[in-house]
């Protein structure tokens, strides 16, 4: 049986509590992984591994490819970032590759260093929901 949105949110909350050592109450939909929950670089890999484990079933493995959830090496091409800002081409690529991240506000001032501020708990839930439904 397919997981409901509430099930997915509860499972994502468990993953974040375990990976980041945060309080369950702090894991709200709008919380950002970096700013609000204190995620550091290696935590993203930890989160990926834990999501895979949490949502895999014997019938359907839940495997997350590199760059599929977090666009870590997506922005290395010079045509995507100019003077620290993500170009229009870069924004288009983000929308295509990481649709679970809402970049509508990011677009207004697309400084690459601010991109992690747009990764929220909701982004993770959207990602899982979309991937499970695929």
């Amino acid at each position: 049986m397919a997981k409901s949105r509430a099930d997915i949110e509860a499972d994502v909350r468990d993953v974040l509590v375990d990976a980041l050592g945060v309080d369950e109450d702090d894991v709200v939909s709008t919380a950002t992984l970096k700013g609000d929950l204190g995620a550091e670089s290696i935590d993203y890999l930890d989160i990926v591994f834990r999501l895979e484990k949490k949502f895999s079933t014997p019938e359907k493995p839940f495997k997350i490819a590199q760059g599929e959830l977090f666009p870590e090496n997506l922005m290395t091409d010079p045509s995507l970032v100019e003077a620290g800002k993500v170009t229009a081409k870069g924004i288009a690529l983000l929308k295509e590759k990481v649709p679970h991240v809402d970049v509508s506000d990011f677009e207004k001032d697309p400084q690459i260093t601010k991109l992690p501020n747009f990764f929220t708990v909701k982004s993770l839930c959207d990602f899982v929901e979309r991937k499970l439904g695929a």
Binding site: I42, L45, D46, F49, E52, K53, Q66, E72
Partner: peptide
């Protein structure tokens, strides 16, 4: 070894 990819392992 629990899990491993290009970036690291747990």
């Amino acid at each position: 070894l629990e899990r491993m990819d290009d970036m690291g392992a747990s």
